[in-house]
Amino acid sequence: MIPAAFDYEAPNTIDEAVRALAEADDEVKILAGGQSLLPVLRMRLAAPAKLIDLGRIGELQGVRTDGDMLVIGAMTSHYDVQRDPLLNEHAKLLVMATDTVADPQVRHRGTFGGSLAHADPAGDLLAPALALDVEMVIAGPRGRRTVPAAEFFVDYFTTAVGEDELLCEIRVPKYTGWHAHYEKFNRVAQAWSIVGVAAAVRPDGHMIAEARVGLTNMASVPVRARGVEQALVGQEATPEAIRAAAEHALDGTSPTADGNADVAYREHLAKVLTSRAVSAAATS
């Protein structure tokens, strides 16, 4: 199908992009990798007056270190995230979740920041970002501000990014030496998660010293499973202990029903998959 006509602008810098946002008076949409936006436009489910394409902004690309943090440019593609040595060493959970996103074509076009800013609750990168306490750097006409992941996701497809702002960087604490696993449950390989569980643990011998767990598609926003995390700390990584901890997986969730899963089944899956994700992380 063919989208309705729209104006198009492709700034070269973040400052130019912010200016373009400020100057646009009609409805404007930011185009990152286009893997969610373009289908919506082509099906004419949205008809923005203008698209601002971030694809030419070099400073939004790539991964670097900044002290004890990693900084991921919002326009870094999934493909580049998968292969980045810094992320593979210090934030393996993000890489593992990215491995499960769609197919190779989509991973070449789609971007890390675009997925987070789109905030589809079935998207696979939100829960890992939340679990790892990343920070979002948002640029706007009043300069830059940093929002913790816990405050970034507001509702279905809604984030803390204002209408005149754009997500430019994601700052990730280093989880060096942590073990991770992303357990995605879907029906065919290229589909969105029915439920997903992101788990990272810091082992101390046979014990779990610290844990981070986030859930995909168990509410309108990603859910941090703090009850599970607390139950795991100080435990030996036995199947029994992990299963017991996973019983807390539903704290703070409010799942909905769809054709693939009703609420009861989704809740059941969340517990089973939490147990599996933590086990896989702890034994990896």
């Binding site: 099906m43 197919d103 029906r187 065919v188 390989a189 290229q190 589909a191 969105w192 054709g259």
Partner: peptide
């Protein structure tokens, strides 16, 4: 995998390849 699903109003809810699950080699 595959099923054409209609809701109670007669709208095809499996109206895209994101909802109508054609399997791939994977």
């Amino acid at each position: 995998f595959e099923e054409a699903v209609y809701d109670e109003t007669g709208t095809l809810t499996s109206g895209t390849l994101a909802d109508y699950l054609v399997p791939s080699a994977a």
